[in-house]
């Protein structure tokens, strides 16, 4: 009896706290979701309260829209590369900063100057995406005034009459953007992984050292398994960033809402915005939004399932 009563009392108690946030969530998150689903079946122009119901037409058109499918492919590419590169780099740096130093008398510590590195690596994270876009706009600038071009011309690797048009090269543009995201993200995940590493008891490392494990072995056999929770969450978060990419693509590349040259850097969000705000096809854009939502949901479920492992308690 008592068990049921306490559990019931607990439910009421928790519910009491949840009413307000839940109401807000329903109004500002769930309700727009439902509306979006609704609009995705209409030919709404986005500038008027009147529209007609057109069934699944938006979705069938979407499946034939080469620009959208190309954008989807780019998102998938980013989805693979953004988390992989960012996490690998961040893990490497975090390990070096925390446990990569030569073992001295004090046991495990980071490489020399690790406190300084930690701060420096975090710098990019404090910049907003809009500033990043301006900054890297200057790096990738397509004439000799650009940082990269200026450097390469100085070295004699690039002909000043034909500088590399980084963001106007179909084969380079996506990778240039990828680099910006990775540069921006590594610092944050480095700090995240550092924090996780610091919570790993030193004696585990010392035990590993005593057993004669080198840096690589320590990392693979000790650090990584103990950090798996953080890596998993990071992967989901970075995956979501890769599905978005709107700010960087729309500000750094050519075309209305970016995506150029000739759709080679297009991501779903830019196609969505162009259709929503520029072409007056808001119903169609809502269908894209729904597709994005479904894909992101699948992504997160798959990531969390695939990376589920036995937890090591410590």
């Amino acid at each position: 009896m008592s068990q049921v009563a306490t559990s019931r009392g607990r439910v009421g108690f928790i519910a009491g706290f949840l009413v307000l946030p839940l109401a807000l969530y329903l109004t500002f998150v769930i309700w727009p979701y439902i509306q979006t689903f609704g609009y995705s079946f209409t030919n709404w122009s986005g500038q008027s309260p009147t529209f007609g119901f057109i069934g699944l037409d938006n979705y069938t058109a979407l499946m034939k829209d080469e620009v959208f499918l190309g954008a989807l492919w780019h998102n998938l590419l980013l989805l693979v590369f953004v988390p992989t590169l960012t996490i690998l780099l961040a893990l490497f740096f975090a390990f070096m900063v925390n446990a990569g130093g030569r073992s001295g008398a004090g046991g495990v510590r980071g490489v020399r100057g690790s406190a300084f590195y930690k701060i420096v690596y975090f710098f990019p994270q404090v910049l907003s995406l809009a500033i990043l876009a301006v900054l890297f706009g200057a790096v990738y600038r397509s004439d000799e005034g650009g940082l990269l071009n200026g450097f390469l011309i100085g070295l004699g690797l690039v002909d000043p009459a034909h500088p590399v048009e980084w963001l106007n090269e179909p084969n380079l543009v996506l990778w240039c953007l990828l680099l910006v995201v990775v540069w921006h993200g590594v610092g944050f995940y480095l700090v995240l992984f550092s924090a996780a590493m610091q919570s790993v008891p030193k004696d585990i490392y010392e035990a590993a050292l005593l057993d004669g494990a080198g840096r690589a072995q320590t990392f693979v056999k000790v650090t990584l398994p103990l950090l798996w929770d953080s890596v998993q969450t990071s992967a989901v978060y970075l995956g979501i960033a890769a599905m978005d990419m709107f700010v960087l693509v729309s500000t750094m590349t050519s075309g209305s809402f970016g995506g150029g040259p000739d759709h080679h850097s297009e991501v779903m969000a830019t196609v969505l915005m162009r259709n929503f705000l520029y072409f007056g096809k808001s119903g169609y854009a809502c269908a894209m939004g729904v597709v994005m939502l479904v894909l992101t949901m699948i992504l997160s479920v798959v990531t969390l399932r695939a990376t589920r492992r036995e937890r090591i308690e410590f």
Binding site: F28, V29, W31, P32, Y33, Q35, T36, Y39, W44, G46, P49, D229, T233, V236, Y237, I240, A241, M243, D244, F246, A269, L272, M273, F276, S282, A285, C286, G289, V290, M292, L293, T296, M297, L299, S300, L304
Partner: peptide, 27 residues
């Protein structure tokens, strides 16, 4: 907690686009 946090992470960025789709009340 971890999972709900992860779910929250998904919903927030997607939402900024989707909520843009929502129009106000009728005229």
């Amino acid at each position: 907690i971890k999972r709900s946090a992860a779910l929250g992470l998904i919903t927030v960025p997607t939402m900024s686009f989707l909520s843009a789709c929502a129009s106000g009340g009728e005229d």
